[in-house]
């Protein structure tokens, strides 16, 4: 089951990052929706593993291939889905999951049937040009570092909160974790799409178990609050440094969300 969990984790990331990489807004949006379904599959498989008295981890063994066109990305997804489906059993859960994936495969097939969909991929070209406005090099550098730091952090938070949510029977904790997961997912989406715009899209690095197996819950939450404070500070600094009204507004908006995360986390203490 751990192998299945690992492959499902990887498939979730593949679909999510395909949505970031592809410029076409319709395809991007559809794949993003599918990624949220894949994330729920991962959650359900994790619950099933725990219910059977076993355990799972967040180990990964994947690369994000730097494709230059849309079709190779879609073909990679087809192969990955076919691979993971070999591991499903006849249980009800997998009937549901296979049905979702069948629909995704049909959608991918429909995209592949139209050559106009095979557009250029610019997400990996390392150009680091902000398409909406001309930013000075130091602003681009600051934005680049921020996006690498924060995309990892949001991925980390999604997985850490999901790990803890799967192991709590406390309704308040469950609810707060869900809010934090949803918010971090939105932040990861925002930052992933910005990285793709800059041509620096990359997978967040793998989580080590020291990061998500929490031994001291109170300390973990207090450290988390301190991290949210630091993230707020980074957003404020970036907002002040970047001379782009839309980006500044966006970072102020993220900053206010981080502020409320602190309130949410304080409910856990």
């Amino acid at each position: 089951m751990q192998e299945l969990y690992k492959q499902k984790h990887q498939l979730w990331l593949s679909v999510l990052f395909a949505s970031f990489a592809i410029n076409d807004e319709t395809i991007k949006s559809r794949l993003y929706d599918f990624s949220t379904i894949m994330f729920r599959h991962m959650k359900w498989i994790g619950q099933d593993i725990l219910a059977k008295g076993s355990n799972y981890n967040y180990d990964r063994d994947m690369m994000l291939y730097r494709q230059e066109k849309v079709f190779p990305i879609l073909e990679d997804l087809q192969r990955e889905i076919a691979q993971v489906q070999k591991l499903y059993t006849t249980e009800e859960l997998f009937f549901r999951i296979k049905s979702d994936e069948k629909y995704l495969l049909e959608y991918i097939e429909s995209l592949l049937n139209n050559p106009q969909n095979n557009q250029e991929i610019t997400a990996f070209n390392m150009q680091r040009k902000w398409p909406d406005n001309e930013l000075a090099q130091d602003q681009i550098d600051a934005l680049t570092l921020f996006l690498f730091d924060e995309s990892y952090k949001e991925y980390e938070l999604i997985l850490v909160y999901a790990y803890m949510q799967a192991r709590t029977n406390d309704v308040v904790q469950f609810d707060v974790f869900q809010d934090l997961i949803d918010e971090s997912y939105f932040h990861l989406k925002s930052f992933g799409n910005m990285m793709a715009k800059l041509g620096i899209l990359a997978l967040p690095r793998e989580l080590h178990e020291l990061t998500y197996v929490v031994k001291d819950f109170q300390k973990f939450i207090k450290d988390g609050i301190a991290e949210e404070e630091a993230a707020k500070e980074m957003c404020l600094e970036l907002s002040a440094a970047i001379k782009d009204e839309e980006l500044s507004k966006f970072f102020d908006f993220i900053n206010n969300q981080e502020s409320y995360h602190i309130n949410l986390m304080q409910k856990l203490l």
Partner: peptide
């Protein structure tokens, strides 16, 4: 940054 070398267990 994009592809850290020797990362993991």
């Amino acid at each position: 940054l994009m592809f850290p070398k020797n990362y993991g267990k």
